[in-house]
C-alpha cells in the first residue's frame, strides 16, 4: 500500500538534524518536495550551507528512516534553488531551539545575498537577540561564527551566560 503524502511528511518529521537533534529536517525547512516516479519516492532536499558536513548524513538519515517505515525505493534529490533561508524554520522548530538553549533566527532578517555591512551603512539597525536562558534583551555578539556554520556566538549581559544564535541566512 502506498502511504499518503501526509503520512510521509509525518515520518520525515521524525528525522532529527544530526547536529541539533532537538529539531527535525522538516522543522529546518530543508525538505522541499515529495513526488512519486513509478514506485520510487523522490525526496527533494536543499542544503543549508553549501559546505555543511551534515548534508550527506541528513540524506542518509532520511533514506534509512523512510525505508525502515516501509518505503522500499527512495531517491534523494539535491535542490539548490531557491536557496535555503532561515525564514523557512517552522514555529515549532524555533520553540524547540529556544528550549534547547539556542536563540532562533529573527524572522525576515535573512540577508538574501545583500551584504549586512552595506545594509547597516544604509541605516539598518543592529539586531536584538533575546537570551534563550533568561529572556533578557541585553545581549551582545562575541563572534560571527559559532560551533557550526549556521550559528554565531553571543553572550547575555544580564545572566552572563554565553549562548549560540542560529544566525539568519
Amino acid at each position: 500500500m502506498t502511504p499518503t503524502d501526509a503520512q510521509i511528511w509525518d515520518w520525515l518529521a521524525e528525522v532529527p538534524d544530526p547536529e541539533i537533534p532537538v529539531i527535525s529536517v522538516t522543522d529546518l525547512g530543508i525538505v522541499r518536495d515529495l513526488r512519486w516516479e513509478g514506485d520510487t519516492l523522490v525526496v527533494a532536499v536543499t542544503p543549508t550551507y553549501s559546505g555543511c558536513p551534515a548534508t550527506a548524513v541528513i540524506d542518509l538519515a532520511i533514506e534509512t528512516h523512510l525505508q525502515a517505515r516501509g518505503v522500499v525505493r527512495v531517491r534523494l534529490e539535491r535542490r539548490l534553488s531557491p536557496p535555503w533561508t532561515t525564514d523557512w524554520l517552522t514555529e515549532a522548530g524555533r520553540a524547540k531551539l529556544t528550549a534547547y538553549g539556542i536563540a532562533p533566527p529573527v524572522d525576515g532578517t535573512a540577508p538574501d545575498g545583500r551584504s549586512g555591512r552595506a545594509a547597516r551603512l544604509a541605516g539598518g539597525s543592529n539586531l536584538v537577540i533575546a537570551c534563550p536562558r533568561c529572556g533578557s534583551a541585553q545581549t551582545e555578539r562575541v563572534s560571527q561564527f559559532g560551533s557550526t556554520p549556521c550559528k554565531a556566538a553571543w553572550r547575555c549581559r544580564d545572566c552572563l551566560e554565553p549562548f549560540d544564535y542560529f544566525k539568519c541566512h
Partner: peptide
Amino acid sequence: AKAVKEVS
C-alpha cells in the same frame, strides 16, 4: 544564488 548568501 546559494553561494552569495554565504559570501555576503
